[in-house]
Design a binder for these strands. Structure first.
Lengths: 206, 206
DNA sequence: AAAAATCAATTAAACGTTTGTTTAATTCAA
DNA sequence: TTGAATTAAACAAACGTTTAATTGATTTTT
């Protein structure tokens, strides 16, 4: 009936897997939520695992494009590129907390090895873009001789720490229970300010 | 037969849950590994969930003691305290990668709400100790007026980023497949050097 | 153009496993 | 003799998957 029932299943799976986890989402839940028959998932994707893989593939296609666009822009300096990438990461992560937790689940526990490898491959490709910029800045003597790989780990790790648990984040920054750090603009600004400050003093000479 | 079969179950559970995840470990696996009957887990702990809670409680008792010991030492400066805490975290995390991933699983996905809250409570208590030191340093005008909460997030986040996935860490730092970043002393030193450097330039005035 | 054939889409139902848990009997030491 | 510890077995529920039948639209044949 619908133009693409396959895509509807992927879309519903993305939402449910992210909210309740992969193991926590049964095919029956998923089928009900998508309004399709239980057998349709296996009919279209072969198995629940392969649906997961299809979902990750579907998601990770568009992520790297933006990073490469920023990296290859000749009109920006290296530190401006770093700033833009930080903004990109913060914006993307904060707007999809559940999805990024799901990906981290798969990174930490390597059940489903195929998926684990696929996620790592995608992640590392993005990584190399940013590390490349840092190394370039060092070569041009615009940046200090920092540890490029671990500097990247500090950037992405800071954001991930905030994304770990909403309740933990709220408690950490001492806000009320109904405060939502992921949608609050002031907090987003605060996170960006801190990140840029710590990375600027770390990277920029003097 | 054994002096404390309860503790044996907890010990085995810690290992198996950490390696294969909570959902991924069946009571049958656990019972076999511990050499006890399947029914013993429910006999002693009531349920699989309560065993998990008992395990976390058992683990998190000793962690905060060391942090408080460092914080309350009058013979060290604030930056020295920060350094000691960083060393403590790095040492502890690197030596128990599986366990910390397990805890992060529970932080990210809040199935088992009782356990989720328990972990957050323990974590936040540790957090406050470190944030307290940073605020003290700022008050004494030894530290820059940084964002204490997010500075903590950067410290712990950097380590957590390294802990996310061993394979990802290896790829990140461009090593061979058999390289183990978690036991390698050179890499531990490299991580400590980076962390102290980025935090020192961030915290210390001038 | 009407009838027949074809094949993907869809369904309800059942399948075989595995799960955490409980039961009821037995062991064993106090 | 008492009661906790331990066992093998069974339990009920949930899971991913498969089956076999049916629908419905498109294509082929008459």
């Amino acid at each position: 009936m619908l133009p693409d029932k396959k895509e509807l299943i992927i879309k519903t799976a993305t939402q449910l897997f992210a909210e309740k986890g992969y193991e926590g989402t049964s095919i029956r839940d998923l089928a009900t939520a998508a309004g399709v028959n239980i057998a349709m998932v296996n009919y279209y994707f072969g198995s629940k695992d392969k649906l997961f893989e299809a979902m990750v593939e579907h998601k990770s296609v568009f992520i790297r494009e933006k990073l490469e666009e920023i990296a290859s822009d000749n009109s920006t300096t290296d530190i401006e590129k770093i700033d833009l990438i930080i903004e990109n990461y913060v914006f993307r992560f904060l707007s999809q907390p559940h999805y990024h937790r799901l990906i981290h689940q798969e990174l930490m526990l390597k059940s489903r090895e195929i998926l684990h490898d696929k996620i790592i491959n995608n992640f590392v490709k993005n990584t190399q873009i940013i590390i490349g910029i840092i190394k370039q800045g060092i070569r041009k003597k615009e940046f200090n001789k920092v540890d490029p790989e671990l500097t990247f780990a500090s950037i992405i790790g800071t954001i991930n720490q905030i994304m770990l648990s909403k309740q933990m984040c709220i408690t950490l920054i001492n806000k009320e229970k109904d405060f939502d750090p992921y949608t609050n603009e002031d907090f987003k600004k605060r996170l960006l300010t801190h990140l840029k400050q710590i990375i600027h003093t770390h990277l920029l000479i003097k």
